[in-house]
């Protein structure tokens, strides 16, 4: 279970202003909202990549904010993180990048063959051809392929929690739908707890158990996809309905 307690964060201006939220184990939560409202910042506080100015994040009751460096590393090993721009290591090929998602100690115990098997499985799960992509460097891949390799790296270590930062941004509709299906499949198959930060509202409504709308640094809406669709809140409606969004944009 992930628990955000009254998270505040200010950079040049306040980004998060008191976000409280609980994500039960096994749930897939999608967070949507206008650009610059702190969705990625909230996600990064989950594993201590950004430390909130106030408030705390608890992972299964363990505080992330007050964790020691060793404890924090231990917490992070239980979490898979898919970065917005994949964040693949330039100097490593695809195989090495994905295999890096398995902890050194576990990789040593598994042996080379088992690590290779897991890497191949993870690449197949994200709809990539392992023999073709494994020797390639990230610079030789398209944007969509890089994203999927990033996803493979996040799932290869079989984490308990998966955090997705804009997993389909920049992908064509077919690949975006494939990644959405994959997120849902991983969530259903492994009962992993997932938080998906996205602008792809259609995908979010399809894959998520609950949808949260972050606006002005606060959680404006949280509920099921059905409740999101039927909400009377104008901003929620603008997100749920493209025509309403166009009308809102015209007014703004």
């Amino acid at each position: 279970m992930i628990e955000y307690r009254d998270i505040h964060k200010t950079f040049d201006a306040p980004v998060l202003s008191g976000v409280s939220l609980t994500v039960p184990a096994g749930e897939t939560l999608a967070i949507v909202g206008p650009s610059g409202t702190g969705k990625s910042v909230l996600l990064k506080t989950t594993i201590g990549l950004i430390v909130p100015d106030q408030g705390d994040v608890l992972l299964d009751g363990e505080s992330v904010v007050s964790a020691s460096r060793e404890k924090l590393q231990e917490i992070r090993r239980r979490v898979g993180y898919v970065f917005q721009n994949a964040a693949l290591f330039d100097s490593m090929n695809v195989y090495e990048n994905v295999a890096y998602g398995i902890q050194d100690q576990i990789a040593k115990e598994l042996g080379r063959q088992e690590v290779l098997k897991r890497v191949v499985q993870a690449l197949e799960d994200v709809n990539l051809d392992p023999p073709a992509v494994m020797p390639k460097l990230p610079a030789e891949l398209s944007g969509g392929m890089r994203k999927r390799v990033g996803l493979a790296r996040a799932i290869v270590g079989r984490p308990e929690i998966l955090l997705y930062d804009e997993p389909v941004t920049g992908l064509d509709p077919i690949n975006a739908a494939a990644v959405d299906r994959l997120i849902k499949y991983i969530g259903d198959k492994t009962q992993v707890t997932s938080i998906v930060v996205t602008h792809d509202i259609e995908g979010a409504l399809l894959l998520a158990d609950r949808v949260g709308l972050l606006e002005g640094g606060k959680l404006r809406f949280i509920g099921t996809p059905q409740a999101f669709r039927s909400s009377t809140d104008p901003l929620v409606r603008a997100f749920a309905d493209r025509e309403a969004a166009a009308a809102a944009a015209a007014v703004m």
């Binding site: 594993i47 231990e74 902890q103």
Partner: peptide, 8 residues
């Protein structure tokens, strides 16, 4: 950040 997230 990716290194941190992978527990490194």
């Amino acid at each position: 950040d990716a290194l941190y997230s992978l527990g490194r």
